[in-house]
Amino acid sequence: MSRLTVALSGDAMVTRGAPITDEPAARDLRALLRGADFAFTNLEVVPSAGRGHPVHNAAGGGALVAEEGVLDGLGDAGFTVFGCANNHALDMGVEGLLGTVDLLRARGLPFAGIGADLTGARRPVYVDRPGGSLALIACSATYLPGQEAAPPSPDLPGRPG
């Protein structure tokens, strides 16, 4: 029986610069993350490609927004799967959230917890490796009213969240 390894981290609140430097301890962390079959982090920023506008609670300095290159840095660090359901997912509004989805997909970075509607936000992500598979479901109980994802109705599209 093969052994499956999973590296778990907390919130990736990287708003600028490389998340892993060339310092010895950082190199050790990178090696650990890259050596795991799966390395998880919670993407606690909105990687912005210029989409969206700060929501009212974020404009006073509470927004966690980063340039889109932060995703490349996190991938280079060794993270292979991302949870995105958190209280900062909508810091740049619906357009920012949809931009995050597009940026993650364009880079082939597996994620769960956000989507164009409730079905997408609830959808698990599956990641396969030679030693086995991982399924991730991400959820959050901290968000402003109106930020939760919603299903479509017969007359209206679903709400991203």
Rank of each mutant, 00 (worst) to 15 (best):
G61T: 15
H56W: 12
V65E: 00
G35W: 02
R34M: 08
M13D: 05
G60Q: 13
I20Q: 07
D28P: 06
D37K: 04
D28E: 09
D22L: 12
A12N: 09
H56E: 11
F40V: 04
S9P: 05
F79S: 12
L32K: 15
L64C: 07
L43K: 04
L71S: 03
M13A: 13
D11K: 10
R34T: 08
A12R: 04
V70P: 03
F38N: 03
M13S: 14
A63M: 09
G75R: 13
A31K: 14
D28L: 10
S48F: 00
G61L: 13
I20K: 07
L74I: 00
A77P: 14
T15E: 04
N86K: 09
D37E: 11
E68F: 07
G61R: 15
N42L: 03
A49T: 06
V45P: 00
L71I: 08
D76G: 11
H53M: 12
F40D: 01
T80I: 13
N57P: 10
G50L: 03
G17Y: 04
A77R: 09
I20M: 08
C84K: 10
F38G: 01
A25W: 15
V14E: 08
S9V: 07
G17W: 03
E68T: 12
F38C: 06
F82C: 01
E23W: 07
G75Q: 04
R27M: 09
N57V: 01
A77D: 15
G78M: 06
V81N: 02
V65N: 01
R51W: 11
T41S: 15
A59M: 09
G78E: 03
S9F: 08
V81S: 03
E44D: 10
H56V: 10
A49H: 06
T15W: 14
P19G: 06
A18E: 06
R34V: 12
A85K: 04
V81I: 09
G78K: 10
N86R: 12
T21S: 14
A31P: 14
D22K: 07
A85T: 10
G17D: 06
G60I: 02
H56S: 09
G10H: 07
R34Y: 02
P24V: 04
P24C: 04
A77Q: 15
H53Q: 10
A39S: 14
D22W: 08
S9W: 07
V14Q: 15
H56K: 05
G61Y: 12
G75I: 02
A18Q: 13
